[in-house]
């Protein structure tokens, strides 16, 4: 009961905070336009030859990718790094709530403020590609939204684990940027995994990357994916990240020497 109240309070506080910066939010939504660039390229490519996907299917795929990306954006490492480097973590440690929940609910609340802009962009997309409009089946809705939720949690968990390194190095975000390179090219953001060469696809499916973007997007638009394997992989990577995270958190706190600690 108490944790429910804490969650509700944190969400409403961060929602109010995020709405304050609406203009900034529009720019954040627009800066996720990377999949739309590839939408253009593949759409054009599909018109000149048989790639196994039609233009409409490509359009649908990249819209789904765009949506998944919007709902799974995570920036916790930059905030956490600042808190550690500037010593702002100290007062937060005094509170009876683990600091992670502030970040987590901050992210959740931000999702809600994004929705109007996302709907606007979807409307624009439907005008541009009327042939690509689709209605997800109940099955796709259920598993798509469930895995979307899971992939947000997984991405948050992984990034928060990297953030723990801020206790030891000053620029933990450099590691995140390096990770992001692999994320960009292996997560299915540049092309559906079906178009990857066989060995690279197999390799990618063992890494966490496709499950952060490709997997929920495919479920949403009804591309065939191995549901059980995907869920197992997500849970497994999540468990690994959680273990390392808690271990680093304990060790990091002992090392932490910010102002007032």
């Amino acid at each position: 009961m108490r944790s429910f109240r804490v969650a509700r309070t944190l969400i409403s506080v961060y929602y109010a905070y995020m709405v304050e910066y609406r203009a900034e939010l529009i720019f954040w939504v627009l800066s996720g336009s990377f999949p739309l660039i590839f939408l253009g390229l593949w759409n054009q490519a599909a018109q000149s030859g048989d790639l196994g996907f039609t233009s409409a299917e490509f359009a649908r795929y990249f819209l789904a990718i765009f949506l998944v990306r919007q709902f799974t954006v995570v920036w916790v490492i930059w905030d956490f790094e600042k808190e550690v480097v500037q010593g702002k973590l100290s007062p937060l440690l005094l509170q009876p709530v683990d600091p992670v929940w502030r970040h987590f609910f901050g992210h959740v609340a931000e999702r809600a403020t994004r929705i109007p802009f996302i709907l606007l962009l979807i409307g624009l997309f439907c005008l541009l590609y009327p042939e690509a409009i689709w209605l997800p089946t109940p099955y796709a809705c259920l598993w798509g939204s469930l895995t979307l939720l899971l992939s947000f949690c997984l991405r948050f968990l992984i990034q928060y684990t990297f953030a723990m390194l801020a206790f030891w190095i000053e620029r933990a975000s450099a590691i995140q940027q390096f990770w992001f390179l692999f994320y960009t090219f292996l997560s299915g953001m540049v092309a559906p995994l079906a178009l990857f060469p066989e060995p690279i696809r197999e390799f990618a499916l063992w890494t966490p990357f496709p499950y952060l973007v490709y997997f929920p997007a495919s479920l949403l638009i009804g591309l065939p994916v191995d549901l059980t394997r995907g869920l197992v992989m997500m849970v497994a990577w999540g468990a690994i990240a959680l273990l390392i995270n808690r271990w680093l958190w304990q060790a990091g706190l002992r090392r932490y020497s910010g102002m007032g600690a």
Binding site: F27, W28, L41, Q44, A45
Partner: peptide, 23 residues
């Protein structure tokens, strides 16, 4: 507005490929 330049950066990504590749 830290992110205005981020928008510009993400649009510039389009420069990876020849312009003829686009619709």
């Amino acid at each position: 507005i830290y992110n205005v330049t981020e928008v510009l950066r993400s649009l510039l990504e389009a420069g990876r490929f020849p312009i003829e590749g686009y619709p």
